[in-house]
Amino acid sequence: MTTLSGLKQEVKENRKPEYDADPLFVNRWSPRSFSDKKVSEETLLGVLEAARWAPSAMNLQPWRFIVARTEENREKFQSFVMEGNQAWSKKAPVLILLVSEKERDGNEIGTHAFDTGAAWGFLSLQAAQKGLITHAMGGIYKDKAKEVLDIPDHFEVQALVALGYQGVMENLPENLQEREKPSDRRKVKESAFEGTFGKELV
């Protein structure tokens, strides 16, 4: 089992791993409170470098990352963020829109969303390793994002990721402060089955 000594205090209080896994996976969670500290270009590119090495069917690499770092670009991205997410995401120093190529040369890429999800996973773990936090949002107006950012029709918007350094909980609106803690997960045996759906693996 992952030793509790390898876990951050806030994680220790909310998560209890069942089996051995690197603490990096358990420690990563999705805070909403961002500090004012800027993310250097070298750090950002290192995070995107990790995402670059995600696996994909036939090595098609259908993911693209549209990055907003300047105040002007971040404000433009906020135009397609739903109101509930605007309250905290405005403070994130970096916003990254994940889009996936769903068709190439007239052929459908059936795994475009799956593969782009793998890239997001790599990105989030590399960010955590570098001391950053990430929070992925589905609460965006995808059609508006395509319009505002001139995204071609053969690409599909997947999610918007806020990236930066963690701030203090008190910076959040009161209703979000209660939620600013690592969430737990269901047990392995509730997700993994043996041979047929629903038959316990362990």
Results as ranks from 00 to 15, higher is better:
Thr134His: 06
Leu123Lys: 01
Gln129Cys: 07
Phe114Cys: 00
Ala127Ile: 12
Ile109Lys: 10
Asp115Ile: 02
Gln126Met: 14
Gly106Phe: 03
Gly139Thr: 07
Leu132Gly: 09
Met137Ile: 04
Gly106Thr: 01
Ala119Asp: 06
Gly121Ala: 12
Lys130Ser: 11
Lys144Met: 11
Phe122Gly: 04
Ala127Trp: 02
Gly139Cys: 14
Gly139Lys: 09
Gly121Asn: 03
Gly131Trp: 10
Ala119Tyr: 06
Gly139Val: 11
Glu108Tyr: 08
Ala113Asp: 14
Ala118Leu: 09
Ile140Gly: 10
Gly117Asp: 05
Thr134Ile: 13
Ala127Leu: 12
Gly131Pro: 07
Gly121Cys: 06
Gly139Gln: 09
Gly106Glu: 06
Asp115Asn: 07
Ala119Leu: 01
Leu132Asn: 11
Trp120Asp: 12
Asp143Asn: 15
Gly106Asp: 04
Met137Pro: 01
Ala118Trp: 04
Lys142His: 15
Gln126Gly: 06
Ala128Ile: 00
Asp115Gly: 02
Ala136Gln: 10
Thr134Asp: 11
Asn107Gln: 14
Leu132Pro: 01
Asp105Gln: 10
Ala118Arg: 11
Ala136Cys: 06
Lys144Val: 10
Asp115Val: 05
Ile133Leu: 05
Ser124Thr: 15
Gly106Arg: 04
Gly138Ile: 02
Ala136Thr: 08
His112Leu: 08
Ile109Glu: 12
Gly139His: 14
Tyr141Phe: 11
Ile109His: 10
Ala136Tyr: 00
Ala127Ser: 06
Thr134Trp: 01
Ile133Asn: 01
Gly106Cys: 00
Leu123Ile: 01
Thr134Ser: 13
Ser124Asn: 11
His112Pro: 03
Gly121Gln: 07
His135Cys: 05
Ala136Leu: 04
Ala127Glu: 09
Ile133Cys: 03
Gly117Leu: 11
Lys142Asn: 14
Ala113Lys: 13
Leu132Tyr: 03
Gly139Glu: 13
Gln129Leu: 12
Ala113Leu: 13
Gln129Ser: 13
Lys130Trp: 01
Glu108Lys: 08
Ala127Met: 11
Gly131Ile: 15
Ala127Thr: 11
Ser124Ala: 15
Gly110Gln: 02
Gly131Lys: 12
His135Glu: 02
Gly139Asn: 14
Lys130His: 00
His135Thr: 05
Gly117Ser: 04
Gly117Thr: 00
Thr134Gly: 11
Lys144Gly: 07
Trp120Val: 13
Ala113Val: 11
Gly117Tyr: 02
Gly106Trp: 05
Thr134Met: 10
Ala119Phe: 05
Ala118Tyr: 10
Asn107Ser: 12
Gly138Trp: 00
Lys144Asn: 10
Ala113Arg: 09
Ala128Asp: 04
Asn107Phe: 15
Lys142Phe: 13
Met137Thr: 00
Leu125Ser: 09
Gln129Met: 12
His112Lys: 03
Gly138Leu: 06
Leu123Glu: 03
Gly117His: 03
Thr134Lys: 00
Leu132Cys: 09
Tyr141Trp: 11
Asp115His: 03
Asp115Cys: 10
Ala118Met: 09
Asp143Gln: 14
Met137Tyr: 00
Lys130Arg: 07
Leu132Thr: 12
His135Ala: 00
Asp105Leu: 07
Lys130Leu: 12
Tyr141Gln: 10
Gln129Ala: 15
Thr116Asp: 04
Ile140Thr: 15
Ala118Thr: 05
Ile140Cys: 15
Asp143Gly: 15
Thr111Ile: 03
Gly131Arg: 14
Phe122Asn: 06
His112Trp: 05
Ala113Thr: 08
Thr111Trp: 09
